[in-house]
């Protein structure tokens, strides 16, 4: 474990300065130092997507990069998609409206991945949504609900 050093980035619009070992995994820093609820450990090797966050708008598997990947950049998690009053944002509302979860463990990663798609392509086709989410695994079998939610969000955004 490396020497501690200060890492600074913006998390959901707020400046964060953390004194953490420089070789820490981004996921654990977000989860346990910055207390971001959302990204989850699922596999540790970019296979399942449940740890997905946005760095400068791009989806990144936070389990598989060091914290330095976020240094000086904008990191977005579920909290960053909320409205300013803390209520769910458009994609989150669509996920609630479609009841697009069972256990919900993949939800955070799926939402972040879908948000990145919608930011790039505000009116995706169903097949574009499926392809964008293809590296997000869901074990409960709620894929169709998630796809419907993303399409609903696109319509409402």
């Amino acid at each position: 474990m490396g020497e501690k050093s200060v890492v600074a980035f913006r998390l959901n619009g707020e400046d964060v300065d953390l004194d953490v070992p420089s070789d820490s995994t981004l996921l654990y820093v977000l989860a346990y130092d910055a207390n971001a609820l959302g990204p989850k450990y699922g596999c540790g090797k970019s296979q399942c997507g449940s740890c997905t966050v946005l760095i400068d708008g791009d989806p990144v598997r936070s389990c598989d990069v060091r914290v330095s990947a976020a240094s000086g950049r904008h990191v977005t998690t579920l909290a960053g998609l909320r409205e300013t009053d803390g209520t769910p944002g458009p994609l989150q509302r669509a996920m609630i409206a479609e009841q697009a979860a069972q256990c919900g463990f993949c939800t955070s990663g799926a939402i972040m991945q879908a948000q990145a798609l919608l930011d790039r392509n505000p009116n995706p086709t169903e097949s574009e949504v499926r392809s964008a989410l293809n590296e997000i695994l869901c074990r409960c079998g709620t894929q169709n609900r998630i796809v419907r939610a993303v399409l609903r969000a696109a319509e409402e955004m």
């Binding site: 609820l37 998609l81 909320r82 769910p88 989150q92 996920m95 919900g104 463990f105």
Partner: peptide, 18 residues
């Protein structure tokens, strides 16, 4: 609607892991 779904979507404490 499921009582626990809004918190999941909004990134609130839902899971043991949280």
């Amino acid at each position: 609607p499921r009582l626990d779904i809004p918190g999941m979507m909004n990134g609130e404490t839902t899971f043991l892991h949280d």
